[in-house]
Every structure is written in structure tokens, then in C-alpha cells.
Write a protein that binds this DNA or RNA. Structure first.
Lengths: 313, 313
DNA sequence: GTTTGTTACGGCTACCGTAAAGATC
DNA sequence: GATCTTTACGGTAGCCGTAACAAAC
């Protein structure tokens, strides 16, 4: 059994059981892949793929198990290489964070600035995407850490750690009737105006919907945006009332806008980080996490990696 | 990077950093091992072993990490082979249980009989040893399942599952004063006689000691045995009063002996099974566990394997 | 007919074992 | 001096790539 064979196997599965494409991805010949897979099947004594004549059409039951374990082994092989890099170049390296606009724009600048000061030689990169996209980036290894609020709960490969809770604000142009209320704002008052808020699947949007549903109101959402800046822009234009993450309101920058606390109206959301449970994280990655969420020490994170299903149960 | 290299690495570490012995164990030449390890070190870019001139004297910090991960990878490679065997020969195979005398003699016969009837083609073997020995058998892969009552808690590689609680009986020759009490037996009454019980490190022996200590009694233990049969033999000879596991008393066989329930005097003990968290268990292994501890379904066991640190916390 | 997987064959890498030399205790 | 590790070197297995063939859509 050779690691190469497992690599072939996993790549064929990943390419939808297409040996030729796998060969192309791995920059090798497809007869080589065919042969090595057959050799592995012979060695293990099981068919891994079901072939219809000369076409790979499915994975056998043992094949699924074998693929699962193979992936883990390859992951660990990658970890071995990372350990090498880590110790050769303690300070240098790279860290890729996958996150949503709101986090990147409002929550991350501060910890990232501190991180860059501490680790100037680390190549830090940020990838933006939807919660689903960023989760998958971490799952497939193209990012190290996912940071998001929604929809990253359901990947068994990922360990999730709570970072902080936050509430929502209503933003309106200054001078707007809602800006000068003498009492806490209510859902009914908000629903009286056209609404601008986050796209579905983003930043706790469904918690907003649920709040209105619970009191039998149907808000008139005139615009859904992916990022807060777009929301604020249209609120400035008088298109409607915005509902945004509290941390996304910056009084000194958001001239002409007023934020009204609405934490009492909507469930708070929790921003979490997600990391592959079997990934090897460089030392500075733990430091970054601690900069972002100071209560998460390296030990906490490693414990969570070891066993995080228990927390969910 | 090749699996073979990892195998060399791990074996050298296991043989106390002696390359020659590792070569012998692996039936290969030691120059080959030296070279492959150097090649791996070059590839990873880190020293794994610290060499004093030409002698391997220690493992570097990254080396320890690398060894840890390598062991896991090799374990999984072995799992791959097992999957093959499992599906080639669904009914056949082997299962090795490491356990103590008491379990082997009194708790296991019934489930093993049922197991053999269900899986006649499985080569079942039982290895007997002290709790420490059996734990290590499972850790190093020479047994699949450990069953014991004491001292198998502290191996992080092992997942532990509670099977059943049991209490102790006092055994005396029939006609003995303690055999005909009209009230529940007390510690003081027991301590009045010479005692015969289990060796330290076995079968909850320290719970027995603790019970006496708690009431300020110092029992006179005249004989410590590893197995219950020895205890019963000497009790029959009138050497003293025995304290044994309740399940180990068989009224129809133990002629001339009387058991007196003593569950109210000593903490109950819990018999557990231990399995390597990263081992691949054959289907019948799960069935065996369920035969032994009917409340442990396959799913329960697999969940515990996935994450069992959480249960301990 | 095109796409896709298998079989056949040759080159070449690199692994392994033997032999000898260098280091350490 | 004995043990242990590395270096040197030759044989060989087996991996990879090209080319031709066979099957499926």
C-alpha cells in the first residue's frame, strides 16, 4: 500500500469517478492511476469501485470506508509536511481565513492588525464567501479557519468554537422618525417602513424573519444585500430602514445615519470559528484565534479539536 | 513521503532509538532504515532524531509530533487492510479479547458461547493479564478489546465504555459463624477474621481497602490472589474469609462454601471495555460487545469511539 | 465517433541488501 | 575492542509514461 495509491483513489472519487480527469488534476497518466488502483484493490482484496464493463460507475460499500480512511491519512500526511514547515520557519508561513463580508469588514481588522504586527512574516490571506462556501473552503483545505455566524454548524469535519455574541441595530437616516423615539423600538414600528437587510443564508437573516413571524408581522423587505455597506448606502438614500449587525455601525464614519439598538427584538447571534478537526494548525494560527476571541486559548482550541461532538450532544 | 518510511521511524522510536534493533524487527537492513529516515527528514526539512555524532540519542520536538501522527497513519493503514478482510470474508476473521481472570472465568463464558454460535468461523482468542497488561495489549494492537474493572482508565488512546456494575460477596465455609448471621454483615465482623482477597491492582482491590480504612479498621489480609478460584480454594481450607466479586460465586459448584452479600459495605465496581479509539473494528466485534453488555449497541460504541473525552470531562 | 478505461511495453528511478569505513562508548 | 551508524555500490523491483486496443455512450 502506498500513499500515492490513496491519493489516486481519493482524486478519482473527487472527480466524480472519472479516472481521466483525476489523472489530469494530478499531472500524471491515467493508465498509471488505473493500474495503481487495481493493485490496491488486489492488495486489500476488495473491489473499491464498481465497474460497468470499462466504466467506473459507483463506489462499493467497503470502498466508501476505504475512501474515508484514505482521506484522513492524506490529511495527516499533509500535516506532517506542515510540521516540517513550522519548525523550519517558526515565524513565517501562511494563514488563510475564510469569512463573510461582515466579519472581514468590521470584526477582523483589529485582530488582523495585531496579528500582522506580531507575525510580520506570515502571509495572511482572506477569502470571502457565503457561509457555505467558506465552510467548504476549510473542509477541502483551501482555507485554515472559517469565521462566520450562520450555516457552518453542520459539517462533521469541522470543529466549531463560539467567539462572541452580538445583537442587531436598526439604522435610519438622521431625522427619520425612528431616530428620535423616547422608548425602545418595537417590531411593529420597524415593520411600518420598508426594510433593507441581509440576504438569506447570511449573518443570521433567518433570526430576523423569525422575530417578525413570531408576532405575526410580515415585514416589507425591499432589498436584501450581502454586505452591510450596501445596506447602509441604500438607507442613506432613504430607500428604507436597515437592520444590521451592531458591530457594523461606525458612528464616526457613518455620517448621516443613526443606529437604534434592537437587541431586545431579535435573538442574539453567535459568531463562530470553524477548523478542520484533523488539520494541523501552525502555532500562529492559535494565536490568531486568541486575538480574535481572547477567551479561546490554544489549549481550549486543541481540546475542542480532539472532541467537539461531545459539546454538541 | 512513503508509508514505509513512517514505519521505520516509528519502529526506531519504539526500539528505544536503536536503528539496528528496528531493522531486525522489520526484517530489513539497518542501512536501509537509516537512509530512509534521512530522506524523510530531508523531505520534511526537519531533524526528527537528535544524533550525537553517529548515535541517535533523542527525538526532537517536531519529531515527537511527527511520530504521533505517523503512528496514527500506520494505524489507519492497518485499518484499510482490515476493511479488506472484513468484506472478503464477512463471517470469518479473528477477535482477540484481553481480560482478567475474573472476567474470563465468570463473566465471559456466556457471551462467548453465544458469540461462537453466531460466528463459528471467527477465531476467538482470549489473552489473560493484569489490567495494565491488557490495556497495553490493546494499545499496541495485539488485542482488539480489553475487559477489566480497574486501572484501564488512563490511556488516552483507549475509549472506555461502562458495561455493568457489580458488588462483592463474602465467602466462608458452610458452618462458619458469618454464614448464619441474622443481620446484614458488617465490616467489623469481617475484620475479625483473617482475610483472603484479590491482589492489589486487580478487580477493585483498593475499594476493599478503602472501605476498611474509612471506618478505621485494619483488616488482616493473609493471602492475596490474582484469581477467585484460588481465593475460594483457601477459604474452603479454612484459611480465612474471602471477599470476592459477587458474580464469581456459583452455588451449584462451590460446594461447602456460603456467600454472604456485602454490597452494602463496599463501593460497587464497574466493569468496562476498552478499545483503541482509532482502530477499525470488524462487524462481529460490535456484536460481541453487545452480547457482553446488551445496552451497548454498535452505534453507541461508534459514538464513543468518535469522542469519548467529552464523557470524561 | 468520441470519450473513457485497460493492456502492453520500455525506460528509469529509487529501494534494498551487502560490504566497508567511521564514531562512540 | 565492541557496538552502532553512515557511506558506497550494485542488483532489481516497480512506477510512470507512451502507444495501441477495447468498450461504452
Amino acid at each position: 500500500m502506498k500513499l500515492q495509491q490513496l491519493r489516486y483513489l481519493v482524486e478519482v472519487a473527487k472527480q466524480g469517478l472519472n479516472v481521466s480527469e483525476a489523472a489530469e488534476k494530478l499531472h500524471t497518466s491515467q493508465p498509471g492511476i488505473s493500474k495503481q488502483i487495481r493493485l490496491l484493490e488486489d492488495e486489500l482484496g476488495v473491489q473499491i469501485f464498481i465497474r460497468n464493463g470499462k466504466r467506473v460507475v459507483d463506489v462499493t460499500a467497503p470502498g466508501r470506508e476505504i475512501l474515508r480512511i484514505s482521506e484522513r491519512m492524506l490529511m495527516q500526511a499533509q500535516n506532517l509536511k506542515r510540521i516540517g514547515e513550522e519548525f523550519v520557519n517558526v515565524e513565517g508561513g501562511s494563514l488563510t481565513i475564510a469569512t463573510t463580508h461582515t466579519q472581514a469588514r468590521y470584526a477582523l481588522p483589529k485582530p488582523i492588525k495585531a496579528f500582522l504586527a506580531r507575525y510580520p512574516k506570515v502571509r495572511l490571506s482572506i477569502k470571502q464567501g457565503s457561509p457555505t462556501q467558506i465552510s467548504e473552503m476549510v473542509v477541502d483545505g483551501s482555507a485554515d479557519i472559517a469565521i462566520a455566524t450562520e450555516g457552518i454548524d453542520h459539517y462533521p469535519e469541522l470543529a466549531m468554537l463560539d467567539c462572541y455574541d452580538w445583537n442587531r441595530d436598526v439604522v435610519v437616516p438622521s431625522g427619520h422618525p425612528l431616530a428620535t423615539l423616547d422608548h425602545p423600538i418595537s417590531l411593529a414600528e420597524i415593520a411600518a417602513y420598508p426594510l433593507i437587510t441581509y440576504d438569506f443564508a447570511f449573518t443570521g437573516r433567518n433570526k430576523i424573519n423569525r422575530a417578525f413571524e413570531n408576532v405575526g408581522l410580515t415585514p416589507n423587505v425591499v432589498l436584501t444585500a450581502i454586505d452591510t455597506d450596501v445596506i447602509k448606502t441604500y438607507v442613506s438614500l432613504g430607500l428604507g430602514v436597515g437592520i444590521i449587525a451592531g458591530m457594523a455601525f461606525e458612528p464616526e464614519r457613518d455620517i448621516g445615519l443613526v443606529a437604534v439598538a434592537a437587541g431586545h427584538l431579535f435573538e442574539p447571534s453567535t459568531t463562530r470559528i470553524g477548523i478542520r478537526r484533523d488539520a494541523y494548525l501552525r502555532g500562529y494560527a492559535f494565536d490568531f484565534i486568541e486575538l480574535f476571541a481572547p477567551h479561546l486559548s490554544r489549549q481550549d482550541v486543541q481540546d475542542a479539536l480532539l472532541c467537539e461532538i461531545g459539546d454538541a450532544a
